[in-house]
Design a protein around this nucleic acid. Structure first.
Lengths: 142, 142
DNA sequence: CGAATTTGTTTGCTACCCAAACAATCTCCA
DNA sequence: TGGAGATTGTTTGGGTAGCAAACAAATTCG
């Protein structure tokens, strides 16, 4: 009965995937959450972006972002530069150590993705991602 | 780049679906989390089950279950009966008020499900649920 | 210039999750 | 049968993740 609800299946799959992500990193002696990984990728590809822009891209509140950035900054992965054009905003950027760490994290994420899609063909994986995207847009403006 | 990662798509879809669940209930003047709904359904269909059995079925730690049960019990939806056969366990059951509330909740969930699957055909919805199930089993014993 | 807006931060609240320790109870076996 | 070991529910402590509201600093716009 519950198993025929999309919301329930989504929640269960998400939690299993999350657990595999955590154990993948733990086995490699690293610590990182999926949210932190997404943040690092976004900052790398969009160096100089502000916290507001980042929070919009991640669809989380700007106040939620602060402790995550603090953590990653404390670990030496990123820096909040002063913006030369706007005194209110911070220009976010990875440090060299952050770049290096992210390269390793990306390898771990790749292995993780391979594991969670082990039961699916390449076409099925693509279809799944596409269906999830459609659910997301149907569910709301998030 | 992130959008091609299953884990990322899953997280985003899940959070949008969660938001729609919350707003569906809020608009109806009700308060319930997806986890609470799943718990109520499981207790209804398996009256008398223990907290350990329930935590296994939900794949959450038994200590996580305690505050959730406390909340639902305080709202008068369920009761922890003493088990006649095992003094350690509680026999969980819905109260009449809980049954009635669950009936209403189920209607709200149905409307919610309809909304989040609005962009999908019936066949696509079934396929999506089936793919999620396969991801869950591939990802781990959760 | 002054009012309104934007940005980042802090504080406070909620939900969810686990691990470790504990008392009560049950099981099992020597 | 008596005690050792396992199980159950709870408590405590810690961590992540999310939002809302209030605030100061800075920008924008009338």
């Amino acid at each position: 009965m519950l198993t025929q609800l999309l919301g329930y299946g989504l929640r269960r799959a998400q939690s299993a995937v999350f657990a595999d992500f955590a154990s993948t990193f733990a086995r490699a002696g690293e610590t990182l959450t999926p949210g932190e990984f997404g943040l690092l990728v976004l900052v790398e590809r969009n160096a100089g972006l502000s916290q507001m822009a980042l929070s919009r891209a991640l669809a989380i509140d700007r106040s939620t972002l602060v402790p995550i950035l603090n953590r990653l900054q404390a670990r030496g992965f990123l820096v909040r530069h002063a913006s030369p054009t706007d005194g209110r905003t911070h220009a976010l950027a990875l440090t060299p150590a952050g770049e290096k760490a992210l390269a390793k994290f990306a390898r771990l994420v790749k292995a993780h993705e391979k594991r969670i899609t082990a039961g699916l063909s390449a076409a099925e994986t693509r279809a799944l991602i596409e269906l999830l995207e459609r659910v997301r847009t149907a569910a709301g403006p998030l």
